[in-house]
Design a protein around this nucleic acid. Sequence first.
RNA 1: GCCGGGAUGUUGGAAUUGGCAGACAAGCAGGACUUAAAAUCCUGUGGUCGAAUAGACCGUGAGGGUUCGAGUCCCUCUCCCGGCACCA
Length: 865
Amino acid sequence: MKKYQPEVFEEKWLDWWEKEEVYKTSPLASEPERKKQYVLSMFPYPSGAGLHVGHVRIYTGTDVLARFFRMSGNLVLHPMGWDAFGLPAENAAIKAKKNPLEMVPENIANFKRQMKRLGFSYDWDKEFTTTEPKYYRWTQWLFIQFFKMGLLYKNEVPVYYCPSCKTGLAEEEVLPDGTHERCQQPITRKTLPQWLFRITSYADRLLEDLKELDWPEGIIEMQKNWIGKSVGAEVNFPLKKIPGVRFSYKFVKVFTTRVDTLFGVTALVVAPEHWLIEDIEHQQVKLPKEKFAEIKDYVEKAKRKLDLTRTDLEKEKTGVDTTLKAIHPLTNEEIPIWVADYVIGWYGEGAVMVVPAHDERDFEFARKYRLPIRKVIANPEAKDGELSQALTKFGVLVNSGEFSGLTSKEAIEKITEKLQTLNLGRKKTTYKLRDWIFSRQRYWGEPIPMVFCQNCARKKITYWDIQREKKSFQFENEELSNLYGWFPVSESDLPLKLPYISSYEPAETGESPLSRIKEFLEASCPNCGKPAKRETDTMPNWAGSCWYFLAFPFWSKKDQSKSQEVTSKEAWKAMMNHYQSWLPVDWYLGGAEHAVLHLLYSRFWVKALSDLGLLTFREPFVRLRHVGMVLAEDHRKMSKSFGNVINPDDVIKEYGADALRLYEMFMAPFSSEIAWSTKALQGCYRFLKRVWELYNRVNWDQVAKNSKENLKLVAKLNRTLKKVTEDIPQIKFNTAVASMMEFLNEYEKNPQGLSKARAKKFLQILAPFAPFLTEEIWRGIFKEKKSIHLSQWPEFETVTEEEIEIPVQVNGKFRATIKIHLSKIKNLNEIKRESLKIEKIKRYLKGKEYEVIYIEGKVINFVHQ
RNA sequence: GCCGGGAUGUUGGAAUUGGCAGACAAGCAGGACUUAAAAUCCUGUGGUCGAAUAGACCGUGAGGGUUCGAGUCCCUCUCCCGGCACCA
C-alpha cells in the first residue's frame, strides 16, 4: 500500500488548481439567485521574516470558511493583498540599508510563496499592494474627496522629536522612559502643522451604528469606551477682574457631568496647556516674580513629560495655585484657580471644577492642598461631620440655595437651565475621541496630494472660494485660515508618485524627507498658476488599510480596465455600480489588537464615503470574528531572541500543509490564545495518515457490490456531517475537527461499512481543512474529473434513531440510564416502569414516597424526602 | 482604579446552552510487533476507599444562593489575560 507522503502530491495539486482556475471569483451579476459571501482576513504587512504560524491560523480560518461557502453553492470573494506602507517597513529598510521600494516586493514574494504552498484558496487575480501607484492613486483620490467635503483641516500639533538624531518620531519609537529607542537620548516635542481628520463629527454615528453589527461584545465595548461619549454641562466661571489686565477670554469654561454638585465647588483646576496659563506666560497677567517662576517651572516640567509619563509615573497629584480667582456663576463667591497636570488639555475644556466632597480625585487634591470641602449632596449612608472619603453617589441636594431638596437628577436639569438663562452655561456632550492626525513626516507613505500657494494664501483664498462645491462641515476661524492657499492636486494628475530617493531618513527639521527633493516640491498653483509648493507629508499606514476591502471587488490584475484608467467620480461610480453588490464584507477575521484603531477608522471612511454618495452602505464589516494569538511552546511570544520561533516552512516539509492547517484549526477555539505544541500537531498528522490508509485499503469495487451498509456507521456519518456543517459558520473549527476524528475512529472499525457515495461525503467535509489529501483521494482513488473543491457540499440525512437513552436520577443524582423506543417518549408510565425495573433505582427508593419529574426525552428524576 | 474576557484531569480543550462532567487530542503507564529503537497497533488513565471492569463518596478557582437538578443562572471574593487609564 502507498504510504502517506504529502510531499509527493501536495505541490502537484497547486499547479492543477491554478490551471483549472478552481478559486476564480465568479461574476456576481451572472447568478443573482445565489448568495454572496465576502470572506476576508485582515491583510498582512509583509515583513522580511516570512509567515508566522499565527498568520497560518487566521488565513486557514478564512480559507475553511471560503471553501465551505464555495462548496455550499455561494458566490465567494476571497482575496489577499499587502499592506506595505508604514513605519515598520521603512525602519526595516533603513536597517537593511535598502530602499523599501526594493525590499517590499522581495518580502511579498516570500509571503506569497508560503501562502500558496499552504493551499489558501485566494483568487490571486485580485492581489494588490497598497504601495503600487495603481492602488494609491485611489487612496489619494479619496483624500481629495474628503478634503473637498471639509473633513480635513490643518493645525499645529506637537510631535515627538529627537534633538540628538534631529528627526521627528512616531510615538512607538519613544521608549516609556522618554528616550528615543535608537539613540537612547531624551526626546522633546516640536510643534508642526499637520493634516487632521474631523472624525469627531462622526462620533455619534460611530457609536450609534455599533448596534447593528455582529461583532464580539468586547470589541463593541472597547469602541464605545474609545469614543467615550459623556453628556453633561459646560459651566462658565467669569474671571475676577484685575485692573489693567485683559485676559484672552472672559470665562474659564469647565465641563462636568455632575452639575448638581456646583455649589460644592471650592477651586478650579486648569491644564498646563490652558490659555490662561499662556496668558500668564506671556505676562499679560503680572504675577509676583516668585509665583511666576513657580508656575513657569511647573508648566515646563509638565510639557516635557510624555503623555505616558504624565499619567503613569505621576501617581501623586501635584499642582500650583495661580492666585488668580474666578467667580462662582451662582453664588458669586471667589474661587481660586490652580494649575495641575492631571488635567489634560485636550479633553473637555482643559479645565475642571473641583468638588472635593463628591469626587474622589478632587477629594485627594483638596486634602493635599488644604482646600475647603463642602458637602452639597445628602447621602443617607454618610454620617455628619468630617468626610473620610468622597461621596460620589447621586442623592438629594443640600446647601445649594434654591436647589436644595432636589434630587441630583432633577438638579442637573434645573441648574443647567438656570445657567443657560444667565448665559453662563449650557447642556453639552463631549467625547474622548479626538480628531485624527493624518500627516507623517516620513518617506514611506502615500504623498498627500495637496499644493500650497503663497500668493493665494496672502489673498486669503481657500479651495471653496474658487469652487462651487459646498463643504459639509463648518470650520473654526483658525482652521479655515490655516487652509488659505491650499488646493488639491488635479484628479487627472493622480497618482502623485512617491519619488525614488536614495536617502529617505527623516529630515533634520522634523519635516518629511520629500521636502529635500526639489523636483517633487515644485509645483504650480491650480488656481493662479504661479509657482507653488507641494505638501511633503505622507499619509499614515492606516490610509491604505482604511479602504482596501472596497478595492478587492473591482480589482483585477489581468483586466486592468475594471479598476479604470482615470481617477474621477465617474470612474469610481462606474466601478461601484458594477461591483458594489459584493460589499460590505460578510466575514472579517483578525486579531484583537485592531479592536479600536483600524476598525474605527475604516468605519469612519465608509460613513464619509456614504455621505458623499460614493457608497450605498454605512458599515464595512457585517461580521467580525477574532483570532487568538499563537504563542511558542514555552508559552512566551515567539521571538528570534528567545529562539522559540516555529517556521511554517519547516513544519510543511516534515508533516505537509494539510497537517499544519488541520492542527491550527484543532488546537483550540479560534479566538483563544494558544501555545504551539508539536506533539499535538503530530496527532493531526496521524489522523490524516489514517484517513489516507483507510481509503487506500478499502477495495471500493467490492464495497460497491456490497449493498449492506452498517446503519450505525451511517448514522454516525450523518451526525458528523451535521456537526461540521453547523460548526464551520459558527467558527467552531476545533469541534468540527474533533467530530471528524471521532467518526474516523468508528469508521476504522468497519471499513466496509459505508458505500462509496457515503465515503465520499466524509472526504468532502474534510476538504476545507485538508484540501490536498482529499483532492488526491477524490481524483486518485475515486477517479473524479472535477476538483473536490468545486463539488457540492453534502447534505446530511436526518436519521431518527429508533431508541434513545434517558438518564435516570434519584434526587438529582445520576444513577442509571434506560433505553426507550422513540414512540414511547411521551409515555411517562412506561418510562417510570422501565426505570423502576433497575435494581439500583429500586434500592434507592425502597420504602420511600417520591415524586417524579420527567423532562421529555432528556431526563427522569425521582425525588424523595 | 475602570472596562472586557477567563479559571474544567498531567496538558490543549469538550459539554446538545439548566439535564450522564472530562468528547477529541496530547502526555503517561502496560502490552503486541522488533535483535533493539523509532514508527504502528491494542488496553488503561479525574481523585479517595475497595481485590474488583462490585459499589460508594468527592470533584469544573473559593464561599454562599436559586432549582427536582448548576461547569452553565444570581451574589460575594481570589487569581490570570487583554484593553484603557488622573476622562471631569
